[in-house]
Structure formats: C-alpha cells, structure tokens
Amino acid sequence: NQASVVANQLIPIQTALTLVMMRSEVVTPVGIPAEDIPRLVSMQVNRAVPLGTTLMPDMVKGYA
C-alpha cells in the first residue's frame, strides 16, 4: 500500500508547508504520495487542513 501525505498539525489557510507539518501514512482514500513531501515544502495550502487530514492535490497551490 502506498503512503500518502497527512497533516501532522492544523495547517492554517495560506500557510507555506514545512517538513514538520507533514507525515506519511497509509490511508484511504489515497492522497498526495509521500515521496512528494520534498516537493511540497514551501508550497501553500489553499484551505485550512485539520490534524490527521490527508493532503489531496487540490489542497496545495501549484501542486496539481
């Protein structure tokens, strides 16, 4: 099973992502693949992302 990127904390809207905000976890449905974590650093979320939420491509500006 492929690991996805999951929020390690509440990430407020417009926040630039850092490594400490994300973790990898095998979840359903599958979100952004964990191997993309380095690419996500400094990208902004376009909505508030609660703790434990799987990051989906449409939540990160410039990802999809």
Rank of each mutant, 00 (worst) to 15 (best):
L55P: 01
L17G: 00
L10C: 09
T54L: 04
L51K: 14
G52L: 04
V26P: 07
S42Q: 15
S42F: 08
M43R: 09
I32M: 02
G62E: 10
V30G: 11
D36P: 00
P12L: 07
S4R: 00
V45M: 09
T54Q: 02
E35H: 13
I32W: 02
A48M: 14
T15N: 04
I32D: 00
N8M: 07
A16M: 15
D36W: 09
I32P: 00
A16R: 11
Q2N: 13
T28A: 11
V27E: 01
T28S: 15
Q2P: 15
A64H: 11
Y63D: 03
V27L: 04
Q9I: 13
T18S: 09
M56L: 11
M59A: 06
L51V: 15
T54K: 03
K61H: 14
A3H: 11
T53K: 08
Q44R: 14
P50F: 08
A34E: 07
E25K: 14
M43G: 03
L10Q: 14
T15I: 07
V41D: 02
S24C: 07
E25L: 10
T53A: 12
M56Q: 14
S42C: 08
T28Q: 10
I37L: 11
T54W: 03
T18N: 05
P12H: 08
R23I: 07
Y63F: 11
A64V: 15
E35I: 14
V45P: 02
I32E: 00
T53V: 13
P38G: 13
E25G: 12
D58I: 08
V6A: 03
L55H: 01
L10Y: 15
V20C: 07
P33L: 08
S4K: 02
Q9S: 09
I13V: 15
A48K: 09
Y63R: 01
G52W: 04
Q2F: 13
L51C: 09
P12E: 09
P33W: 10
V30C: 07
A34C: 07
L19H: 09
T54G: 01
T15G: 05
T18G: 03
A16S: 14
R39P: 02
P33Q: 06
T28Y: 12
V27Q: 03
G31M: 02
M59H: 08
Y63S: 04
Q2L: 13
Q9A: 09
V45W: 00
V30T: 12
V20D: 15
V49N: 03
P50A: 10
M56E: 06
A34W: 07
A7N: 01
N8A: 13
T53D: 11
P38W: 12
L51A: 14
A16V: 11
I37W: 03
G62N: 10
P29R: 04
